[in-house]
Amino acid sequence: MTALRARAPHLGLGLLIAVFALFFLLPFAGLLERGLGDGGAWDAITSDTALDALVLSLWTSALSLVIAVVAGTPVAYWLTHARFPGKGAVEALIDLPIVLPPTIAGVALLTAFGRRGLLGTPLDEWFGVTLGFSTVAVIMAQLFVGAPFYVRAARAGFASVDGQYERVAHTLGASRLRAFGRIVLPLSWPSLAAGAALCWARALGELGATLIFAGNLQGETQTMPLAILSAFERADGLTAAVALAILLLAVALVALAAFWLLSSRNGATP
């Protein structure tokens, strides 16, 4: 009886699942229907604007990911093992951008690194460096909203590794770095890959903070999400917006598939 129940869900539950699934499937179906049914879509995808935006999106989000991994891995490892007063506060602070609406992240970045911001003012006055409206600002916005996802996942991954393995490695004469590379990294690999995928996806989709902090200029700060928003505002723009959205979706799917493949292949064997 119970086995039967588990296999055949209640009618109400089945309906709920169907409605829920449709809610997520229909928007994609709508995109495809509009995009493939319109002759202008191909022109939009192959336009200068689209290519510039795609190239900018890909390399900035990739660089954001690299920075997040290089800086975030040691931070996450240290946070997993360190004990100090106020650790909870530090962890909460690192998680904060995850729950922060991106527009607020944009305003926050402005108040810190904008031309009249805390650090932005001395940067501008002493070195003549301004970050706003630059590709650097795009990467900073992506890093700000994306990196916390990686650090969070990495912390969970490191915490799941049994400390005894590391201790054994040390007693056998392995250096800290070697133990990390041979023991901790392979064991926590799935978490790291999943965190990296989330971080990259979040950076690729970044809109609000970029719009506010970095502005919107083709080839400079106009990433795919901004190009899609801009296309939406043109007279015949919906076709272009839909086409660009499908392009970005396809790129994201390929990349995410690669991430998952990576995490499942190397995760199995420590």
């Binding site: 402005l110 904008g114 031309r115 009249r116 706003g132 409206f133 719009l211 502005g215 919107n216 200029l217 083709q218 400079e220 700060t221 928003l229 801009s230 505002e233």
Partner: peptide
Amino acid sequence: NVRSNEANVRATLAKVELGEA
């Protein structure tokens, strides 16, 4: 000299009010 093309005129104004532009 254009550094950004904003989505509406108030966003444009805000960039100057903030001193970014």
